[in-house]
Design a binder for these strands. Structure first.
Lengths: 194, 194
DNA sequence: GTCTATACCCAGATAGAC
DNA sequence: GTCTATCTGGGTATAGAC
């Protein structure tokens, strides 16, 4: 297998593991096992564990923005065709779609709360602002709309991180909360639980 | 010094460090140094690092609910006195107040995204639902109101975790975002940055 | 391009003195 | 109650073979 393919393979595996256990909690060995390669080889490809995590963040942000752009483009088509959908509905749906890659959003989330780390924090802040600017400038949302959208997103991320769906039919409060927060996409989210 | 005082002292220090570096990223030695005691003594008091973190979560949730209850009580007084304030405004203000203890909210946040951990995840979910029930039952919010309140809270936590305020006067997007998300309390938040 | 073997360090926990 | 000294495990990174 070529270097680029292996790299992408490892990045995919790393995204899952980092999302599950966080930056520090993840061992390069766990990533290696998930990718089916040896631990030293993971290090060899990326240099250090930190560089690997930064690459994961990079890729996650690319994918996030890509998904939003696609949703936005589909929206333009819909508008042209005289259909009702508005930008932020489409983009919101795109975000819900991303929940399927739990590792992607959770890896980002783990990066977000490590703001005091010199390298990771800097990249995480820049990434968050990149998303902010996209929503403001390309998606044309107002500051208040972006604010609500991001708040909604952070709650969804947190609920996914909490594995709240595991309590869906064990606790009425969990059920009510999830029903309110995820009017659609709920059955899908529940299907992710073990 | 008595055991209880030391315990509280260490818990306070631990809350700060866990909030900064997360559960796995925190060493018991860093906590010990922050508390001014020896590393083995920290372990001695709580048994294990995990037990220490669980105690930090416990204490953080207690304080959070305490702050909400106090706000709610003040609200009842205000209502009696014929003043305008509504429950969720007061409670929202109480939450903003809590931002002063960055470690408290961030330790909770770190717990929230470790939902897959058997012990920590279980406690974090239970704690989150405890807050949910308080807002529904004691504060009398509707499901939608709780949902919005929690979304807002998760965004604030994330912005604090990101140290977004550090970019306030370096990046117009950061400024706009913080101005929107924190109409009040902003100067205070900024004063926390190094 | 990928592995095995291993060096080295660091962190959590224990033993035991004061 | 609190410390110093230390054992032990596990994790990143390197060396070097194939």
């Amino acid at each position: 297998m070529k270097a680029d393919e292996r790299r992408e393979l490892v990045l995919r595996a790393a995204t899952q593991v980092f999302g599950e256990r966080g930056y520090v909690g993840t061992t390069t060995d766990a990533v290696a096992k998930a990718a089916g390669v040896s631990q030293p080889y993971v290090v060899r490809i990326f240099g250090t564990k930190e560089a690997l995590f930064l690459a994961v963040l990079e890729r996650a942000l690319e994918r996030l923005l890509m998904a939003f752009r696609t949703a936005l483009a589909g929206d333009a088509d819909a508008v042209t065709a005289g259909e009702p959908g508005e930008s932020h509905h489409r983009i919101g749906a795109a975000y819900a779609e991303l929940l399927s890659d739990r590792g992607l959003l959770l890896s980002l989330m783990h990066g977000f709360i490590l703001g005091s780390d010199p390298e990771i924090g800097a990249r995480a802040r820049a990434g968050f602002l990149q998303v902010y600017r996209f929503l403001r400038e390309e998606a044309g949302m107002s500051p208040d709309e972006v604010h609500s959208f991001l708040a909604e997103g952070m709650l969804l991320n947190t609920l996914v991180g909490l594995r709240m769906a595991a309590d869906y039919d064990r606790d009425p409060a969990a059920r009510e909360l999830l029903d309110t927060a995820l009017p659609t996409k709920l059955d899908f989210l529940l299907s992710l639980e073990p």
